[in-house]
Amino acid sequence: MLNIKGFSLSRENEKFMLINDMFIRSGMKVNIFGNNDTGRSLLLRSIHGDFYGFGGKIEIKDKPILFYKKKKKTILLENTSHLLINESVWKNIIIPLPKVTARQKQNIMELCMISKLSDKIGKKINTLSSSSKKFIELIRAVIQLPQIILIDDLENYFDDKNIVTALEICNFALNSGASVITTSKRKLENFDVYYRIQDSKVVKL
């Protein structure tokens, strides 16, 4: 599904985040880990089509990311939270949905139950913890069944127990053929594929 070839980022004439060849199939959970300032966030933004200052080629389903400019099939969960703080959990989850079907409603309730948000569904966002807020963003992404869910710095919001919960939520989209790509500072458990960033290169483990 995702095919990256000859990818590189540049900073002051110095290339970093070099990827010779990366192919990620649908339904895969991928963890890319490495230190700070290695270009993890820029890689995710490049795949998402928010950043074009890279070298090489990125294709999703054999089409360049430029093709998806106005009809994005990826959802990026960045470090900063993208929520309406004065609105309820429910409202924040359904923001991008044109219409909430009975099936979607049921799925949302199930996912909220997994993330222990079911009793807070009517509460305003500003009363919730940062991990709960990230769960809301994750449920919102998952429920739309995109081709790829990109999560930057997964460990920033979740402890090990919550990471397991987050992956359980991701399974909903994974079962429908989506892929999940996460970045982190350390290697996380329960992923299908791992890439390590070392010496400015991305290496498959």
Binding site: K71, K72, I75, E78, H82, I95, P96, R140, A141
Partner: peptide, 16 residues
Amino acid sequence: DHFWKIFHSSGGNYRK
């Protein structure tokens, strides 16, 4: 504007 930024970043239709 803030709503629409969140709408787009959350995966909402860009033409909406």
